[in-house]
Amino acid sequence: MASAASLTVSVWRGGEQGHFARFDVPARENQTVLDVVTYIQRELDPSLAYRFACRVGMCGSCAMTVNGRARWTCRTHVRKVVGAGGALELRPLGNLPVIRDLVADLAPFFDKWSRARGTFQPKEAEEGAVPDDFAIVPPASKQRRQADAGIECIGCAVCYSSCDVVAWNGDYLGPAALNRAWTLVNDVRDGARRDRLDAVAGDAGCHSCHSTQSCTERCPKNLDPSLAIAGLKRTLFWDTLLGRR
């Protein structure tokens, strides 16, 4: 595909209602999708709105829907995703309101992190005060390993945008918020376990997950939100069955 002299790029323009605009962009041997978007904005149409910051896969702000699939555009080489004849289709992330062009509004996504009690609540120090002493958490302990498995999430919303259950149920908390909750359920220093498990239970929470694992498949950090959600379900199953909640 690198042989095509130029790429035919369809870019979403407008808000919820909008249309695709076509741009011809020179094809290069080494080129990310973010390079293509930047080229369009700098050389062809300065009114194009898009979002990026670090360009190296650290910040998670450049995620978009590329040829139907949510991805970090900065870490996606054009030659790996380009269609026949150099075709690229760029949309904002799905399952989120569109602000303009390629920029999705991530407010509902982060609101759900707080609904899932995604903030650390120190056990012996209310109101976020600094505890008196260091907590000792053995790195090899099961809970520490389970927390470690999900802690590297940078909140790019690729999983949320890829989740069918979010599309079916607007209240569903989504993979990232539930993954965050699971890391905190496994944090032995945290004191809000009970409230957090209440917050992630039921139809808007982990129990709606169908385990189809699009989140796990598409997570650019190779995290496994499906496994985290299964962990929440398992914990709530035994707690409910044994009358612990």
Binding site: D198, A199, A201, G202, D203, A204, G205, H207, K233, L236, F237, T240, L241, R245
Partner: peptide, 17 residues
């Protein structure tokens, strides 16, 4: 909401059992 979530969890547990 917490009560509703608890009842929904009970239904889910009933279905698994």
């Amino acid at each position: 909401a917490a009560r509703a979530a608890r009842q929904q969890t009970h239904l889910w547990v009933a279905q698994r059992v």
